[in-house]
């Protein structure tokens, strides 16, 4: 049976597959008020809604940490997997290879990615698993109350005066060097930049890394760094003992390409973001690395899409997987038959 309908303009409240934005929502967030991570959650919801991706075909992957809790706060209709600290890439690899039709969106943190998870992060990129990987980067361990992560700037200070003596791992530079075909950096409170980046990342066939600066409103204090996120003004107060988190308003920015924007964080400190020029060519690896480093020397945190390469085969292609997801193969696809076994066993006589 078929019916003919006159095409009408889609109602503004639904997307191309007839779902409304509420269909992309998740459970209530349990993060601190004003956390940059919640902004990113909203931008993920917007991106998937606008792309018209069916939530049941999405798998939400994460490791451990504040960031890794966030998949519970978007797309409740999608299966979610809050895995093990630093090990989300391996779980994602298995899931995507088992069902190649799934859209994987992963949320990780700087500790989950650049410290405990650096090995799996690197090998995920090496294999070019088709997934979006957002690092909600605040340079600090929030969930265990404020220790340094590997993305913290060298010489930055912790709240009680401890100085980070180690070099910072730049997730974007690392990803580019490892051969990642989609590398971007953005800021949690910049929907105009971040939403298109997430949408582009979803469309990219292969691993897409978005290093998203996401201020921790509670535990960060890297004075003099490019990211200074101290959220508690009463500096002498031992926060982890009094257990009070005051929260802060969400930080939003809106600045044009090629320009520089100073952002005042919850503690009154400043970071300076610089957005890539519109005419920047993101297909030149060396140019991208050069620009990120040069900006860093100038005290600027460069944002934008740094590098794109769409020519690499993703893992399902490399493995020459059958079109049917492995998870849906039938007994007859999986068991070769008794005669074949007899023939094999004959060779062992």
């Amino acid at each position: 049976m078929s019916t003919t309908t006159t095409p009408t303009a889609a109602a503004p409240s639904t997307n191309s597959i007839g779902l409304n934005k509420n269909d992309y929502k998740g459970g209530p967030s349990t993060l601190c008020i004003g956390c940059g991570h919640d902004s990113i959650t909203n931008h993920i919801i917007t991106s998937f809604y606008e792309l018209g991706i069916n939530p049941h075909m999405v798998a939400k992957m994460s490791g451990i940490g504040c960031s890794s809790k966030t998949p519970a706060y978007f797309m409740s209709r999608a299966h979610g997997f809050n895995s093990v600290h630093g090990r989300m890439p391996s779980v994602s690899t298995g899931a995507k290879v088992a069902n190649r039709n799934l859209n994987l969106i992963a949320v990780s943190g700087d500790g989950d990615t650049a410290s405990i998870g650096l090995g799996q992060f690197s090998h995920l990129i090496r294999r070019n698993l088709d997934m979006v990987y957002i690092v909600e980067n605040n340079g600090v361990y929030g969930l265990t109350k404020g220790q340094f992560s590997a993305t913290a700037d060298k010489n930055s200070k912790l709240k009680y005066g401890a100085v980070n003596p180690f070099e910072q791992i730049d997730i974007c530079e690392l990803a580019i060097t490892l051969g990642c075909g989609f590398v971007a950096r953005s800021f949690s409170g910049d929907p105009k930049q971040l939403v298109p980046l997430i949408k582009a990342a979803v469309s990219h066939k292969g691993t897409a890394i978005i290093d998203c600066i996401s201020p921790c409103v509670t535990f960060n204090n890297h004075e003099g760094s490019t990211r200074s996120y101290l959220a508690v003004k009463e500096k002498d107060e031992p926060l982890h003992e009094i257990g009070y988190v005051h929260g802060a308003p969400e930080i939003r920015v809106d600045y044009p390409e090629g320009s520089v924007q100073e952002v005042e964080l919850a503690d009154g400190s400043i970071i300076t973001l610089k957005k890539l020029d519109r005419d920047f060519n993101p297909t030149d690896k060396l140019a991208a690395l050069n620009l990120i480093e040069t900006s860093k020397r100038e005290g600027l945190l460069l944002t934008g899409l740094f590098y794109v390469n769409t020519t690499n085969a993703d893992l399902t292609q490399t493995l020459t997987l059958t079109d049917t997801p492995l998870a849906q193969l039938k007994d007859s696809d999986l068991r070769p038959g008794t005669d074949k076994l007899s023939k094999i066993l004959k060779s062992f006589e």
Binding site: A59, F81, S83, V84, R87, P89, S90, V91, S92, T93, G94, A95, K96, V97, A98, N99, L102, Q120, P325, L326, A327
Partner: peptide, 9 residues
């Protein structure tokens, strides 16, 4: 990790 991701899926 991969095996259990695949098992889950």
């Amino acid at each position: 990790g991969m095996a259990l991701g695949a098992g889950w899926a």
